[in-house]
């Protein structure tokens, strides 16, 4: 039996202290220890992208990160996007453009695209497709997802803010 270890980190602006087994993946920590089940777990080997979260602002696979590696870090998950039930412009663009069907992959896609649009506020469609290549969607064929990202970029630009 391996001893549990202490972890301190911030998730969506709230500080947490927990004791966990070292083998706890960050994805499982977020879902099972913090009950933030918006972060989805698909392939558990880094391919599908469903579990993508932001760690200190950068999108990473939470299934390829041990929770202990997030010690002291600021994590953002899908639950951070809306404000009191009001969708963020990025979420709204996916809603308006049918950028999802079953929705399983959507949390990972939104977190990836949030970071992508902050880096590249005026992306070409090719750049969006390249950026989406790390997130698998088995429903949509991606066309509506690309449209959603284009719409989110346009909405952010027209509102005078690059914030997705």
């Amino acid at each position: 039996m391996v001893d549990k270890q202490k972890i301190h980190l911030t998730v969506n602006g709230t500080a947490y202290d927990r004791e966990i087994e070292p083998r706890t993946l960050l994805s499982d920590f977020i879902r099972h220890h913090l009950d933030l089940t918006g972060t989805h777990v698909g392939c558990e080997h880094g391919i599908c992208g469903s579990c993508t979260i932001l760690m200190d602002g950068l999108p990473v696979r939470s299934c390829l990160t041990f929770a202990l590696q997030a010690e002291g870090k600021a994590i953002e998950t899908i639950e951070s996007l809306d404000k009191n039930g009001e969708l963020s412009p990025l979420q709204n663009a996916f809603w308006e453009n049918q950028g999802l069907q079953c929705g399983f992959c959507t949390p990972g896609i939104l977190m990836s695209m949030k970071a992508f649009l902050e880096d590249n506020p005026k992306p070409a469609r090719d750049e969006i497709r390249e950026a989406l290549s790390g997130n698998l969607c088995r429903c949509t064929g991606y066309h509506d997802i690309v449209d959603s990202v284009v719409a989110a970029a346009e909405a952010a630009l027209s509102s005078g803010t690059a914030k997705a």
């Binding site: 070292p22 558990e44 080997h45 880094g46 696979r61 299934c63 390829l64 041990f66 590696q69 002291g72």
Partner: peptide, 27 residues
């Protein structure tokens, strides 16, 4: 040694790798 873990953790998730001790140099 655990650095980024982008291959090692995937291998551990599959239990293709089962190290007894991990020394994390990622931080």
């Amino acid at each position: 040694i655990l650095a980024g873990g982008q291959s090692l953790i995937a291998a551990m998730n599959y239990r293709l790798a089962r190290p007894q001790v991990l020394i994390d140099i990622s931080n």
